[in-house]
Amino acid sequence: MTPAGFPKQARVRARAEFDRVFQQGRRTASPMMALHRLVDDGPVRLGLAVSRKVDPTAVGRNRIKRVIRDQFRRMRGDLAPGAYVLVARPAARQADNDALRDGFLRLLQRAGALPVVTPAGTMSADSSSPLPPDAPASTGP
């Protein structure tokens, strides 16, 4: 399987594992979806819960799951180990694919599952002095 695949080891499948994530994991929520994250030593795994209350049509529910699964495949290598269960909410039905991807990414960042991205500035991170490294230090007035 390719690195961007979705093998069985990368899925939360059993009801017992879903229950464990819901009971022991931490929840981070937005109006569109809720993310339950359980930190453990296992590989990165994803479970999806999209009920008929979210979208009464199977086509709509499958679209939401397909978009989230695709985004998860692409970033699986960057995520912290553990189990992730995403529960879609009714607002996900009206969201387009880009909004679903963005909402999932934001939840992962808020949950601490992704490394923090610092914005690029004009100064280097190790610079404690406003002088360039090759400039002579001033000894006084």
Rank of each mutant, 00 (worst) to 15 (best):
K8M: 12
A113H: 01
S128W: 01
D40H: 14
L100F: 04
A10P: 01
L48Q: 07
A88Y: 02
D78T: 14
Q94M: 08
K53T: 12
V21G: 01
G103L: 06
T118Q: 14
R74A: 15
A88N: 02
V54I: 05
P136K: 11
A95F: 03
R63Q: 09
A34P: 07
K65G: 01
D134T: 11
L46N: 07
A10Q: 11
A49W: 00
G25N: 06
G60L: 06
G42Q: 14
A92Q: 00
V117S: 12
T118F: 04
P56F: 01
P90W: 01
L108S: 05
T139A: 14
G121C: 02
P31Q: 11
R66I: 06
M32C: 12
F18A: 06
F6Q: 04
P141D: 14
A34S: 15
R20P: 04
A10K: 03
A58F: 05
G140Y: 10
V87L: 11
F6S: 03
S51G: 15
V117C: 07
G112T: 06
R74D: 11
M123S: 09
M33S: 08
A91T: 05
V85T: 08
A91R: 13
K65F: 04
G112I: 02
R13K: 14
A34C: 11
A88T: 09
I68L: 13
T2D: 15
L79E: 10
N62T: 02
D98P: 00
R76F: 06
D41S: 14
Q71N: 10
D19H: 09
R52P: 00
L86F: 04
V85M: 04
